[in-house]
Simulated assay, not measured.
Amino acid sequence: MKLHIKNMVCDRCKMVVKAELESIGLNPVDIELGEVTLLDKTIGDEQLEKVRSALAGVGFELLEDRAKVITEKIKTLIIDLVHHTVEPLKVNLSSYLSDKLGTDYSQLSSLFSNTAKITIEHYYIRQKIERVKELLAYNELTLSEIAFQLNYSSVAHLSAQFKKETGLTPSQFKSSSERNTIDKI
């Protein structure tokens, strides 16, 4: 049985979800960001309520609505792409998401916008800006290196997008260091 879980954004999230599920007697056999495969083929309503409660207690949400599940899968793919992948994307985002989810991008886009109340492109931009903030805070890469790593066409494009999203230039941000957690974007 597969469970779809909202707000799983890192390896630590996977560990917490695994521990919570094991504590209520379930056996996760595979845990990915946003998705858990259980050894059990089905679970009863009482057990499902325990899952909801256990996950809610540690900041996660069990997703049961198809639109929310697909929206969360899109978010997970984008988060993984922006925050956990070193290689720049070789195709455009719409092709990447369509290929990964096996669904036409126009359907994904419409569903995502209706469910998340933001476009996929804007969500992607917000994630990239949060990654820029993180890399600026580390102070290990130049702005040119950050622009290249995140597949911006130029430093000017990154800077303009950064200013539009945050109201600050990258150098002003470095002075103030204001970041959000990934699940709050």
Results as ranks from 00 to 15, higher is better:
residue 130 E to P: 04
residue 120 I to K: 05
residue 75 K to M: 07
residue 131 R to V: 10
residue 74 I to A: 07
residue 106 S to E: 08
residue 128 K to D: 06
residue 60 F to N: 11
residue 126 R to E: 12
residue 60 F to Y: 15
residue 94 S to F: 00
residue 83 H to P: 08
residue 87 E to V: 09
residue 109 S to G: 05
residue 91 V to I: 04
residue 95 S to P: 00
residue 98 S to F: 03
residue 59 G to E: 08
residue 106 S to L: 07
residue 83 H to I: 05
residue 59 G to Y: 10
residue 67 A to H: 11
residue 91 V to P: 00
residue 107 Q to Y: 09
residue 74 I to E: 03
residue 119 T to D: 11
residue 60 F to G: 10
residue 71 T to V: 07
residue 108 L to T: 00
residue 97 L to T: 01
residue 137 A to C: 10
residue 81 L to P: 01
residue 121 E to Q: 13
residue 69 V to W: 10
residue 137 A to V: 11
residue 112 F to K: 05
residue 112 F to V: 08
residue 129 I to L: 15
residue 69 V to E: 13
residue 113 S to R: 12
residue 65 D to H: 15
residue 91 V to K: 03
residue 94 S to Q: 05
residue 73 K to A: 14
residue 134 E to Y: 15
residue 49 E to K: 14
residue 52 R to H: 10
residue 120 I to F: 06
residue 48 L to C: 12
residue 79 I to G: 04
residue 68 K to V: 09
residue 129 I to F: 06
residue 136 L to M: 12
residue 54 A to D: 08
residue 77 L to C: 04
residue 55 L to H: 13
residue 85 T to G: 05
residue 59 G to W: 12
residue 127 Q to S: 06
residue 77 L to W: 03
residue 75 K to G: 08
residue 71 T to A: 15
residue 73 K to S: 14
residue 132 V to E: 03
residue 99 D to R: 03
residue 131 R to Y: 07
residue 121 E to Y: 11
residue 109 S to F: 02
residue 109 S to W: 02
residue 76 T to R: 02
residue 62 L to A: 15
residue 131 R to G: 05
residue 82 V to K: 01
residue 76 T to I: 11
residue 83 H to F: 15
residue 125 I to Q: 06
residue 78 I to P: 02
residue 135 L to F: 15
residue 134 E to V: 15
residue 97 L to D: 00
residue 101 L to I: 01
residue 101 L to E: 00
residue 112 F to D: 05
residue 75 K to V: 12
residue 121 E to D: 14
residue 128 K to A: 05
residue 76 T to K: 02
residue 99 D to P: 00
residue 50 K to P: 04
residue 53 S to V: 14
residue 122 H to F: 09
residue 93 L to M: 06
residue 129 I to V: 15
residue 59 G to C: 13
residue 101 L to A: 01
residue 109 S to H: 07
residue 100 K to T: 02
residue 48 L to A: 14
residue 55 L to F: 13
residue 69 V to H: 07
residue 105 Y to M: 06
residue 91 V to N: 02
residue 54 A to P: 08
residue 107 Q to A: 09
residue 107 Q to W: 03
residue 87 E to W: 03
residue 77 L to E: 08
residue 51 V to C: 13
residue 88 P to I: 01
residue 120 I to C: 04
residue 65 D to K: 14
residue 61 E to N: 13
residue 75 K to P: 03
residue 83 H to M: 14
residue 127 Q to L: 12
residue 57 G to D: 12
residue 93 L to E: 01
residue 94 S to I: 00
residue 81 L to D: 05
residue 90 K to E: 06
residue 88 P to D: 02
residue 114 N to F: 07
residue 124 Y to S: 03
